[in-house]
Computed example of a mutant assay.
Amino acid sequence: MFDLEGKTCLITGGAGSLGLAAARLLHSHGARLALVDLDLAALDTACAEAFGAAAGEVLCLAADVSDEAQVRRAVARTVERYGALDVLISNAGIFGTVAPIQDYPTEIFDSVMAVHVRGAFLLAKHGVPHMREGGSIVLTSSVAATRGDPGVYAYITAKHALTGLMRVLAKDLAPRGIRVNAIAPGPISNGFQQRVEDGLGAEIGRDGTEFFNEMIPMGRHGSPEEIAASILYLASAQSGFTTGHLLMADGGMSV
């Protein structure tokens, strides 16, 4: 059903739990992979653990997604190895911090926007010219793209901005049959979310994970594998008439 045989998929944020879960699932359906992350050593280790003997089939590349030259080079290396691109998954992200507007560090705001928004823009800018018709771009957004929570200035602003970028790209690339969508996970059981919840728990004086679970109608966090399944749908021809869509995978948190 989800045939990606011979399709080339480039995933940023490849060493994280969601990037790896998506990579494993796409690879199991025949995709050829290029994984990009800031720390090549960490990426190589994660790739070896995730793919075992098949790790050599995966192209691992180091790049800061906010640096145009590095993104251009990562795309060029991928095209050099595989010939063309079919799927781009912009998954790199950082959270920033939580603080009142008067105290929010400008440099943190800038860095979060650079990774999420500039990173997705640069991946599309340099990746799209090498994409075959009928390809797919998936931006990792968040339930934060539908919310406004006190003090979460950088992360929430960045995720809202990704929705706008996704919609512009969808209109621009539709004539080439390239679909552009975003996945909006709710809280996921992973290290990224745990760090957010530890910080929140310290601020509110209670367990941050329990606090989030109470906000989710399904009463639990999602798993990286559950989110990866939605990414697979958007990456494959099964979503052939779906573009410009923000797919909620949040256990009902945005309802």
Rank of each mutant, 00 (worst) to 15 (best):
S142Q: 09
L88I: 03
F212L: 12
V98C: 09
V79P: 01
V71C: 15
F211D: 06
R81Q: 08
A174Q: 10
D172G: 07
Q194R: 15
V75I: 15
R220P: 05
L246K: 01
M166N: 00
E57A: 06
Y153R: 12
G219P: 00
L122W: 11
Q70V: 01
R24K: 15
G186Y: 07
P105G: 03
I227P: 08
I216L: 06
G14I: 01
K159G: 12
L4R: 09
H116Y: 08
G134F: 11
G13W: 09
A53L: 14
V79L: 07
I231M: 15
I89A: 14
C9G: 01
D250V: 04
C9Q: 08
H29W: 06
V112C: 09
S236K: 12
L35P: 00
P105F: 00
R73D: 15
D103L: 14
I231T: 02
A184Y: 04
A161M: 08
V112N: 15
H160W: 09
V98N: 10
A41I: 07
K159F: 11
G252V: 08
V79A: 06
P129M: 08
N190E: 03
V115L: 07
E214Y: 07
M131C: 13
R220G: 05
A84L: 06
S142G: 02
G14M: 03
G135M: 10
R220A: 04
A48K: 12
F121P: 11
S254Q: 04
G205P: 02
P185M: 15
A46K: 06
R77T: 00
A99I: 10
A62L: 11
H221I: 08
M218E: 14
L40G: 02
G19W: 02
L61A: 11
H116E: 03
G14A: 01
E210Q: 08
S236I: 13
R81W: 02
L43K: 10
A55Y: 07
L232Y: 11
N91F: 10
D3H: 11
M1P: 04
S90H: 10
S223A: 05
A84W: 13
A228Q: 02
V117S: 03
A184V: 03
L38W: 14
A54C: 03
E225G: 05
F95S: 10
G134C: 01
T78K: 09
L247A: 04
R81L: 07
A144Y: 04
R77Q: 09
A202W: 08
H29I: 14
L200K: 03
L59G: 07
H29N: 11
I183N: 08
D110Q: 12
D110L: 11
A202N: 04
A99F: 00
I94W: 10
L85Y: 14
L38Q: 09
I216N: 00
I216T: 00
L59P: 00
A21L: 13
V138S: 00
P185W: 09
P150L: 05
M248T: 10
L59E: 15
G119E: 04
E210D: 09
D37Q: 00
Q238H: 12
A228N: 06
T12V: 06
P187S: 12
H27T: 01
